[in-house]
Design a protein around this nucleic acid. Sequence first.
DNA 1: TGTGAGCGC
Length: 153
Amino acid sequence: MAMAMRLPAIARAATEMASAPVGLRRLLCSNATNFSFLSPQANSETPARPQADPTTNLFVSGLSKRTTSEGLRTAFAQFGEVADAKVVTDRVSGYSKGFGFVRYATLEDSAKGIAGMDGKFLDGWVIFAEYARPREPYRPQNNMPPSPYGNRY
DNA sequence: TGTGAGCGC
């Protein structure tokens, strides 16, 4: 009886925690060093917005290492048209880094994707779906060693 | 334990 209660209770707790806003999630998932509710201006204003601006692009974390880009696309495709889905993998080992990106065709779809997938289970792991931050500008790695003669010809 | 927070090439 008691054993039968264990798994559902854990699953429920995980889902509840996952359904909390991202800021609160950080509080629940880690031993927070910053108790912002003790701060006077915490209620009036939140200086740093925890959530990125809405985009068609989603950042998905908490993925199982076994989840592939195809699995990611399949899971998110039930809530909208997925234009692109990618699990980020380590270049040398090929293993998943445990997070990825899903780009929907429209903003409406991406909103539905978050609502439908955030805090849900995928391959046995509770995943987090949120709007992705704009990708860092691509700068080609300049592997040229500094010339002893300087950069002038 | 591809040891688990994160933002990709």
